[in-house]
């Protein structure tokens, strides 16, 4: 029996989504595992959003947790002070992060701060925000600020279990993937990829580098900022340590080793590497405290050295073989198009 490629893709997506929907129900009794899978999704969202500015536009942004922290502080402060629902705080948090992105991105792109300097500037921004929020005692300060506790309140986005957070995160992930997919096939996406390949050449061909990069940065910042609201609710407090340079760098690394510009690449990297890291951490914990990081970093180096195109490539090959087996079409094996 021969199946069409589109049907095959739909079935594949459906299976993946079904697995993602069922996972929390299988492990619902173990809150620790629930936190883990939600964390994997969180990194999936961040790396997928990063794919727009980093993977496509080639701007190595190392400030994911700056935008996340801004979103978390916006919605958290609104909830604590004025009892504003985090669902509204999510939008506002996203807007604040976007505003900050414009504030920073406009001069950066205007003055052609590029490549390594862009990366370092964004990395410095995270630290600047962290110190600024520690010193800004009205909103941040060195002590955690706790969100009001409810055992189950949809309005306050506060739940006694992590299952709802998992589904919220999953919804955001699906939105982020859709946005990524749409942009990848729009004019903006082609412009961004041209910029990522060679910025000067793209500009000569008439791509407005500044505007395109700023748009990409804004979309990325909004998604990450909105995620920040969920992040704050999930952990139940806000604290300047949310602005973490190391974790921001990790998001970018996931985007790179996943496969730059491939829609599902960063998610794949997040699922594999973050769960592997957490598994290592849990199983090696105790006397060998940091061994998991040693192994993790060696794996990162090996992937970057030997698979610079990203681990998505492995899956593309497997996907094509499966597709050709199912559809009986030999051409997909040689096709040079990005997968799904």
């Amino acid at each position: 029996m021969k199946i069409k490629a589109t049907t095959f893709n739909r079935v594949l997506l459906g299976v993946v989504l079904a697995i993602a929907l069922v996972i929390p129900l299988l492990i619902r009794t173990n809150q620790y595992n629930l936190v883990l899978v939600t964390t994997v999704l969180l990194y999936g969202v961040l790396a997928t959003a990063w794919n727009i500015i980093g993977g496509m536009a080639g701007q190595l942004d190392l400030a994911a947790f700056a935008y996340l922290g801004l979103g978390a502080f916006t919605s958290g402060t609104l909830l604590i002070r004025w009892n504003v629902s985090p669902w509204i705080g999510m939008i506002l948090g996203g807007l604040v992060a976007t505003g900050f992105a414009v504030l920073v991105g406009f001069p950066l792109f205007r003055f052609k701060v590029r490549e390594v300097w862009y990366a370092l500037t964004s990395s410095a921004l995270v630290e600047v925000l962290k110190v600024a929020f520690v010193m800004w005692e009205d909103v941040g300060g060195p002590v955690e600020r706790y969100l009001p506790y409810y055992s189950f309140s949809l309005y306050h986005m506060r739940f006694g279990t992590y299952i709802p957070y998992y589904y919220i995160m999953l919804a955001i992930l699906v939105i982020a993937l859709l946005v990524n997919y749409r942009i990848g096939r729009s004019k903006l996406g082609f412009y961004l990829r041209a910029l990522g390949e060679d910025e000067d050449a793209a500009e000569i061909l008439g791509v407005d580098a500044r505007a395109c990069k700023l748009k990409a940065l804004m979309i990325y910042a909004f998604i990450v900022g909105a995620t920040g609201a969920v992040y704050a609710c999930m952990y139940g407090f806000i604290h300047p340590s949310f602005f973490s340079g190391a974790r921001s760098t990790e998001v970018a690394i996931l985007g790179i080793v996943g496969g730059m510009g491939i829609t599902y690449g960063p998610l794949l990297a997040a699922v594999i590497l973050v769960s592997a890291r957490e598994f290592l951490r849990a199983s090696l914990g105790g006397q060998m405290e940091s061994l998991y990081l040693v192994i993790y970093s060696v794996v990162l180096i090996l992937i970057a050295l030997f698979r610079p195109q990203g681990i998505a490539v492995f899956f593309q090959d497997a996907y094509r073989k499966l597709l050709s087996r199912v559809t009986g079409d030999e051409h997909v094996l040689k096709a040079n198009t990005p997968g799904i």
Binding site: G54, G58, L60, E115, V116, A119, T249, A252, I253, I256, V257, M260, M288, E289, S290, L291, L293, V294, Y296, S297, V298, L300, I301, A304, L305, P308
Partner: peptide, 27 residues
């Protein structure tokens, strides 16, 4: 091995090295 690669690959590798050094000193 990364000299001929894009600069992002170099950064990924040196970030890996950074994490490695930090982890090994912690260990």
């Amino acid at each position: 091995g990364t000299l001929r690669q894009k600069y992002v690959t170099q950064i990924a590798v040196t970030v890996g090295l950074m994490t490695f050094l930090r982890a090994i000193t912690q260990l």
